[in-house]
């Protein structure tokens, strides 16, 4: 009886704690359940798709106070992968990302505006090629819950369009290829 009481007290306090404060999540890059992808027009005729393979980050999210959500992500710029070695080498060079000079890109959120329908806008500072700009990412909550292995996961997707010249990347790929669309698929494991 004592044991049962103790167990229910402990569980009550645990549940109380999780409900009252923000939950911290680590983005599941180890299991590769998170993606930083980009899409840019090729000559205006088709899309070129690629991604950054190495990045890490975390976020905190409280279902009862979603406006307090925050995100922090660091991307290894040299991990760019467009499925073509010669092109990736060019993209890493000082014509584009200049990964020797700027090995990291990063995003630090400053605020989050939930729309109340599972979508929202995440504002923050994005640093690329040594230039920091305020950006707003359109966010959509995908889902959350227990995973089959005893953990708790939560996932979002996000999208933002960046103009390369804003970040000092001015190699001329043609008039149709000045903007790059970023697609983020982020799954976090609750700590």
């Amino acid at each position: 009886m004592k044991k049962l009481l103790l167990a229910s007290l402990v569980s009550a306090s645990l549940f109380g704690a999780t409900a009252a404060q923000a939950e911290d999540y680590v983005i599941d890059t180890d299991g590769a359940h998170a993606f930083v992808q980009f899409k840019i027009s090729h000559l205006g005729y088709s899309w070129l798709l690629g991604r950054f393979n190495d990045f890490e980050g975390n976020f905190s999210y409280d279902e009862s106070n979603p406006e307090n959500a925050s995100v922090s992500v660091t991307i290894d710029t040299a991990s760019i992968d467009s499925n073509h070695a010669e092109r990736d080498k060019h993209l890493r060079s000082d014509d584009f990302l200049d990964v020797e000079e700027f090995p990291e890109a990063s995003f630090e959120s400053t605020s989050y505006k939930p729309n109340g329908d599972g979508t929202g806008t995440l504002m923050g500072k994005f640093t690329l090629h040594g230039v920091t700009k305020d950006i707003s990412i359109d966010v959509k909550e995908i889902g959350s819950g227990q995973d089959p292995w005893g953990g708790f996961r939560r996932g979002f997707e996000g999208g933002v369009t960046l103009t390369l010249a804003d970040y000092g990347i001015d190699y001329d790929l043609g008039p149709a290829s000045r903007d790059v669309e970023i697609f983020l698929s982020i799954e976090g494991i609750r700590q």
């Binding site: 499925n83 073509h84 070695a85 990736d88």
Partner: peptide, 8 residues
């Protein structure tokens, strides 16, 4: 080795 790094 540059040009064949991705298997092409």
């Amino acid at each position: 080795l540059i040009s064949t790094a991705d298997g092409r």
